[in-house]
């Protein structure tokens, strides 16, 4: 069991997603610290990928901006090393299978342990393929976070029983992005998880307002917000960090 459980010890968890290197790594570092100050309990650091097939236009845009700015996996490792001088909340990487595979899964995941990354979220690695990375994650004590989707009927128990860190409950069909309304029966999904495993559940995809966060946190142990934060970075660029901090505070306050 990693550090991740600490994120769920302070009431409902607020999990912030930030794409590393959008618009540059200095802004990422400032935004992470602003989110921590604003009350974020865990931060998902996105390592950009050229072709992020699970992302909507907002996060796709962040990936493109970051990669055109010259960010690389190695530079992101340096960023995390620097962040760990004062940031103590759990940090996880969110990226795509090829970024880890191409680096060499063993080198990548051992580096995660060395620099203080607690978990790994790979949206294109479902239960059936997790053995590609899971034994290595276990070897280095990095949690491989599993996802459950609105279409996971019949698979929830299987996934929950072997889940590590926390369970990422995908709120809606489709890709990441802000949504006006979330209609999935999340209560039922979480209750199947509860019957099968003792693991925190966090709901992501489509959450942007304090009202949505409050509602979603009623079903689970935490909420994950990505696109809404990326929109702030897109709008304010290098001036974004204080706005990110303020936004995170409003969201955390709503779910306290």
């Amino acid at each position: 069991m990693s550090n991740i459980k600490k994120a769920f010890e302070n009431g409902k968890a607020f999990i912030a997603f930030i794409t590393c290197g959008d618009p540059d790594l200095e802004t990422t570092a400032k935004s992470v610290r602003a989110a921590v100050a604003g009350g974020a309990d865990l931060i998902e650091l996105g390592i950009p990928f050229s072709d992020p097939t699970a992302e909507g236009p907002v996060i796709q845009g962040a990936n493109i901006r970051a990669l055109s700015g010259g960010v690389t996996t190695d530079k992101i490792f340096d960023l995390v090393r620097e962040l760990r001088s004062d940031v103590t909340i759990p940090l996880v990487f969110m990226t795509y299978a090829n970024v880890v595979y191409s680096y060499g899964a063993d080198s990548f995941i051992s580096m995660c342990r060395d620099i203080g990354i607690d978990g790994l979220i790979l949206p294109d690695v479902p239960y059936e393929e997790k053995d590609e990375f899971l034994p290595i994650c276990r070897k280095y004590g990095v949690d491989l976070v599993s996802l459950i989707a609105p279409t996971s009927e019949g698979r929830i128990a299987m996934i929950a029983k072997e889940a590590e860190g926390f369970l990422y409950i995908v709120s809606s069909l489709g890709v990441t992005g802000v949504r006006g309304e979330i209609t999935t029966d999340l209560g039922s999904i979480v209750s199947v998880v509860r019957e099968n495993a003792d693991i925190p559940c966090a709901i992501g995809f489509g959450i942007s307002t304090p009202e949505q966060a409050k509602k979603m946190s009623g079903y689970a142990d935490g909420v994950i917000v990505g696109s809404a934060i990326i929109k702030i970075l897109e709008k304010y660029g290098r001036e974004a960090p204080p706005h990110v901090g303020e936004y995170v505070r409003s969201m955390k306050d709503a779910i306290r």
């Binding site: 699970a54 294109d124 459950i148 989707a149 996971s152």
Partner: peptide, 21 residues
């Protein structure tokens, strides 16, 4: 653990959970 859809080491099902079913 899952040899379905493999051609040697290649193939597999590296897709979002949403599409698995």
């Amino acid at each position: 653990t899952n040899e379905r859809g493999r051609f040697g080491v290649h193939g597999g099902q590296y897709i979002p959970e949403t599409l698995m079913n």
